[in-house]
């Protein structure tokens, strides 16, 4: 089984976000593989262990995103591809276009990815890749079985979950709960250094800058007001409880 896993390097979820020159600063940020993509890589490795085959990891990002690919290789993926678009002016359509182009030069039975990234959280790249490659997509999958030309996936849907069957090749995106990603062994880490990792530019996937121009333009970045110190709601228990319900509705807008 030829398996492709799409990964993205993101900031660590605990990273302190600050603005530098009007943009999100990258200074001193721990970079990690997007956790949802880790589920995808893990699932890819499980499929490989069950059905045989090989796992190719594909990412779009700056050269430092190599680390995320290396991590996937250390977990057990067989080869990696990094396409550096050479510009920061990219959006989801850019990334999807590049990924699709890179993947289209590979053989694949199934393409896995995280259903969203924890940084921009836009949850659309994998779906766009499916659309470009004219493949069906099942998002937010929490259970997957795939062999012999079809996949059966349990996915979150509005108000519950659904079991869906889809012919392969298809794009499947991982939701939390799909699996517990493995921690790379030393052997994995050592071997990852020797596994093939192709670094490419736009030209290498036959694209030019105009084909991948971002459609979304960010006008400005800002930080939310610093979290106000916790507010203790005064009053007798019943009174405070009522005030709390109101605060959750009107202030926090959360219920």
């Amino acid at each position: 089984m030829k398996i492709v896993a799409l990964v993205k390097q993101t900031f660590d979820s605990e990273a302190k976000i600050a603005l530098e020159g009007g943009k999100i600063g990258r200074q001193g940020i721990s970079l990690i593989m997007n956790p949802y993509d880790e589920y995808a890589v893990e699932e890819a490795l499980k499929l490989k262990e069950k059905n045989g085959g090989e796992v190719t990891v594909v990412t779009v990002g700056p050269d430092e995103a190599t680390e995320a690919v290396r991590q996937a290789l250390a977990m057990g993926a067989d080869q990696g591809i990094l396409v550096n678009p050479g510009t920061e002016d990219i959006d989801e359509s850019t990334v999807a276009t590049i990924l699709a182009k890179a993947v289209s030069s590979l053989e694949y039975d199934i393409i896995l990815g995280g259903f969203r990234a924890i940084d921009d959280g836009s949850a659309q790249v994998a779906g766009r890749v499916a659309e470009i490659l004219n493949l069906p997509v099942v998002n937010m999958v929490t259970k997957l079985e795939a062999d012999g030309g079809k996949a059966v996936a349990t996915a979150d849907i509005e108000g519950g979950s659904a079991v869906m069957e889809v012919p392969l090749p298809a794009v499947i995106t991982a939701q939390k709960g799909l699996n517990e990603p493995r921690y790379p062994s030393m052997k994995g880490i050592m071997q990852a250094k020797k596994k093939p990792l192709k670094k490419m530019g736009l030209g290498d996937v036959s694209l030019d800058a105009s084909q991948v121009a971002a459609k979304v333009k960010v006008l400005n970045y800002s930080l939310p007001p610093a979290r106000a110190a916790g507010k203790v709601i005064p009053g007798e228990p019943a009174e405070a409880a009522a005030a709390l319900a109101k605060a959750l509705r009107e202030e926090a807008k959360i219920i």
């Binding site: 660590d12 605990e14 721990s30 990690i32 517990e180 493995r182 921690y183 062994s185 030393m186 052997k187």
Partner: peptide
């Protein structure tokens, strides 16, 4: 840990936290 990568999930969390944020709580 190093050879089999077979250990309790809580240890994995602590390791990942130490790697990324240099403390076990993350």
């Amino acid at each position: 840990v190093l050879d089999e990568s077979d250990f309790p999930g809580e240890a994995q969390l602590a390791f990942t936290n130490m790697e990324r944020n240099s403390n076990p709580w993350g």
